[in-house]
Design a binder for these strands. Structure first.
Lengths: 224, 224
DNA sequence: TAAATAGTGTCTATCAGACAATATCGT
DNA sequence: ACGATATTGTCTGATAGACACTATTTA
């Protein structure tokens, strides 16, 4: 142990979703050593025989462990060194993805390992390896992208109102569990005059005890 | 070949500099197979025995091949797959760095391999492996960072004038070899009222056949 | 009508781009 | 004085934040 000639290569994925009005991430409880019983980001060790590239490794991990197909995987950063895995020199490539929670039957389907959605800014348990650091990097990259005006549309259901979208942006931008990053309604809506990312669904409205709200959907070619 | 159980792991570095009024990158001519004789980004294969992490691998490559110590290495992206190296499944982590050309005696010192500064937007030869793609990614990341108002201060000499700094920004922002991205002088200078990245050197001026220009230096804690 | 949320309008401070005006050197 | 570049100032259109106003539904 610790003296491998080749490093252990793996791909890990931070899958974010919205639940209970908070940003959540999918964690798995490791079944096998090392770190058996500890919570971790879903991931897999590279298999050069079967994986065309590293994104394939990441997708395989999601398929096998939690039966999930994500629309869009984004590579974020590579963590490497002698100290991050007890088995020795290792290298982990971190991906992140956004997914509406209802698209994951994962929590039910997975038989191999325990799976759980966890509030990123609150309930976080201790994580195996350097996954706490990786998750923090993914969390702040997500915040950064929304801050620079990218829309987290892959977190939204098929149809959504502008108010719902704004709430999700505010959740992501918030720095602390309770802290709300209140966005201005006027300014937020002004953006969509110029953006081609979302499309109004003619005649579709969300109804409640108030004026109906126009429903929107994601433009077909949207990425991120 | 092509059936290794473990991937070949390496770190490659795109070192940028300014020369001949253009953006240049340092290339080495490979001495050994594979791709002997081809030009490539300087890089090294990971040695788990000696490298603490991947940045250490990258720094070792620069030290060994071209006797260079860069102040700041930034990890950009990881390229991996079965097809990028004839030896089989491989994984390459790309770093980039900025360096004033005069800080590199590399072209002289290197005995192992031929070393050359090449104009990124013009003279580029064919590159080994997927290094053309890697270089393109590094080049556009650099442009992107300057576009979003980061200052390429590590490309500047110890002391420099605002006009010189502006010229460098324009070179990086240019999209085509000839195309100049003319920045407005007034707007460019206005930024430094707010930025703490550069510091005026009191009493130091660049002289010529015109009004002397105030010299500046990089603030001590600057990164990138 | 009241409550609730959707959606729009307006005012203002700030800022970037354009461009003009002034400053200060070497020759 | 002239050429050359440095440095500063002004004008204007665009925009984001703040905030108020109107609209449309259910109860």
């Amino acid at each position: 142990m610790g003296n491998l000639l080749f490093p252990l290569v793996s791909a890990d994925v931070a899958i974010f979703s919205i639940g209970d009005g908070a940003l959540q991430v999918l964690l798995v409880q490791r079944a096998r050593a090392p770190a058996a019983g500890a919570w971790a980001l879903p991931g897999a060790v590279l298999n050069p025989q079967s994986d065309r590239d590293l994104e394939a490794t990441a997708r395989r991990a999601l398929r096998d462990k939690i039966s999930v197909e994500v629309p869009y995987l984004s590579q974020l950063r590579t963590f490497a060194g002698a100290d991050r895995d007890p088995r020795g020199w290792s290298l982990g490539v971190l991906y992140y993805a956004l997914l509406p929670k209802n698209r994951v039957q994962a929590v039910v389907r997975s038989k191999v390992e325990l799976v759980r959605w966890v509030n990123v800014d609150a309930d976080l348990p201790a994580l195996a390896f350097d996954h706490a650091e990786q998750l923090a990097a993914a969390r702040s990259a997500l915040r950064e992208r929304v801050r620079e005006h990218a829309l987290p549309l892959h977190l939204m259901p098929e149809q959504f109102t502008l108010t719902q979208l704004q709430k999700v942006c505010e959740i992501i931008l918030a720095q602390r569990p309770d802290g709300v990053a209140a966005l201005d309604k006027g300014a937020f809506r002004r953006r969509f005059a110029k953006s081609a990312d979302i499309v109004e669904i003619p005649g579709a409205f969300e109804r409640g005890a108030q004026r109906p709200a126009q429903l929107f959907e994601v433009a077909p070619d949207f990425r991120f």
